[in-house]
Amino acid sequence: MRARAMALAAVALALAACGRPGPGAPTKGGADTGLVIGVSLLNLSSEFIVLLQRAMEERAAEMGVRLIINDAERSAEKQVRQAEAFVAQKVDAIILNPCEVEASSPAVDRAIDAGIPVVNVNSETRSAPSAFVGSRDEESGRIAMEYIAKRLGGRGNVLMMHGFMGQAAQIKRDAGAREILAKHPDMKLLAEQSAEWDRAKAMSLMENWIQSHGDKIAAVFAQNDEMAMGALIALEAAGLKGNVVVAGVDAIADALQAVKDGRLDATVFQDAKGQGSVAVETAFKLIRGEPIKREVYIPFRLVTRENVGEFLGR
């Protein structure tokens, strides 16, 4: 019994030690406005979302706004609960980074019903929020595939690695890529398969594709950089990278470094910093009742060896 009590005490201490000094308290910059924005993020174990979070924290600190950041851990149900908690805490605005189009909609509804403005960032919900800040995911697929088409001269066999089938990003990036493929009748989609956004799975898939398609492969489009890196490593190991164009999406640090080293051909930069800071600005304006744009699209940008310098270290 005593051992158990001590264990509990130890856990409590550890938790206390982990706690950050005053969650999201303004540390520098603008004077404290006393405003509070609740933020529910898709998943803090994703690099992109972490970048988004940091951008929001920076901007909020500058503006003197306090953020309460919650991780929904990919669960829409949890996200709805978090939104309800924000409503109960009477936050001034909510920024939602939705997990799912349908299942996260109740989170928006709860807030709107309670008269709290909601800004959706990065992905959409069926229910209309007060404002949306993000990028058109189709655009990323289009940009990457256009680059591949240009490199191949509009002719050749392409492989596509999908993310988790049925997720919004997978569906949209797929649609954008297909749009471009349709314009180039001489570009053939040799095979497509899901590697579930995972680098190790993408590596295995690429190895298997090399076995079945070998030197017929001219290009690989992976719907995110993790998979692009996996495909790249497999191609390099098979000594085929010289003949194959590989492009990904997201511009994660590893991919940028690979582009700089001339290993990866291209990635598409999604502006986490832009999305994060604009989302906070929009929420701030909504609270103040200032005019806003209901939909703000932060553009994607193609990253190749030529321009990689300006993205590294961003």
Binding site: Q193, S204, Q211
Partner: peptide, 15 residues
């Protein structure tokens, strides 16, 4: 099985 299904190009859903 994993390798074979990829080689046969079986669509993701069916895999």
């Amino acid at each position: 099985i994993n390798n074979g299904l990829d080689l046969l190009n079986v669509p993701s859903y069916y895999q």
